[in-house]
Simulated assay, not measured.
Amino acid sequence: MEAQMVELARAAGTAVVTLMATDAWERTRDGVVALWQRVSPARADGVEGELEATRDDLLAAREDGDDLTEQELREEWVGRLRRLLREQPEVADELRRILGELDTRPQDTGAGTVQLRAEASGSGRVYQAGRDQHITER
């Protein structure tokens, strides 16, 4: 398998799992399922269920701070997409298009610059974010 295809599978698998915990999840799921429906309609429903199960596992792993499970989930989807590309190399362009639509970089919302400043003393805590923030304390 060409190195480009392996890299595409790696980028796509990583993006799919990363986006499972974002607002782009539904678009991500729909794009991946649509790809499978085109190349293997009989497996599309199963892929959708596997995506949902992976998302549940990812959210639980993040809640528990389990980075190893998150990495395993990424590798699992990298492998699935690599096998798909090996069996059906003609879907590479469509997979690239889906990745382009699901751009994982932060989007400019036009809201302007965010400036944060905080001070804490003693045992005070400061939590700041210019966007999403997830805090898990035990």
Rank of each mutant, 00 (worst) to 15 (best):
M1G: 15
M1F: 11
E2A: 11
E2F: 07
E2H: 10
Q4D: 15
Q4I: 10
Q4G: 08
M5F: 08
E7L: 11
E7Y: 03
R10D: 08
R10Q: 11
A11M: 08
T14A: 12
V16P: 00
V16R: 00
V16A: 08
V17K: 00
L19M: 04
M20D: 04
A21I: 05
T22A: 03
D23V: 10
D23S: 14
A24K: 14
W25M: 04
E26D: 14
R27W: 03
R29D: 03
R29C: 06
D30N: 13
D30V: 02
G31K: 05
G31S: 05
G31W: 01
V32K: 01
V33D: 03
A34G: 08
L35Q: 01
L35R: 04
W36A: 11
Q37I: 00
Q37K: 13
V39R: 03
V39K: 02
P41Y: 04
A42E: 13
A44P: 04
A44G: 04
D45R: 07
D45Q: 09
V47E: 02
E48M: 06
G49Y: 00
G49F: 05
E50N: 10
L51C: 03
E52M: 14
E52F: 14
E52A: 15
A53L: 12
R55P: 05
R55Q: 10
D57Y: 09
D57A: 15
D57T: 10
D57Q: 14
A60N: 09
A61F: 06
E63C: 06
D64R: 15
G65T: 07
D66P: 05
D67R: 12
L68D: 14
T69D: 02
E70L: 04
R74K: 13
V78E: 07
V78T: 08
G79S: 10
G79K: 04
L81N: 01
R82Q: 14
R83G: 03
L85A: 03
E87D: 12
E87N: 08
Q88W: 02
P89L: 05
P89H: 02
V91G: 02
V91S: 00
A92R: 05
A92W: 01
A92M: 08
A92C: 03
E94F: 03
R96Q: 11
R96G: 07
I98D: 01
L99Q: 09
E101I: 03
D103R: 06
R105T: 10
R105D: 08
P106C: 07
Q107W: 01
D108I: 09
T109N: 08
T109Y: 09
G110D: 07
A111G: 09
G112T: 05
T113V: 14
T113M: 07
T113L: 11
T113I: 09
L116E: 09
L116P: 04
E119R: 15
A120M: 10
A120I: 13
S121K: 14
S123D: 15
G124D: 11
R125F: 12
R125K: 14
V126G: 12
Y127M: 09
Y127L: 14
Q128D: 11
Q128A: 15
R131A: 15
D132K: 05
Q133F: 08
Q133D: 00
I135T: 13
T136Y: 10
E137L: 12
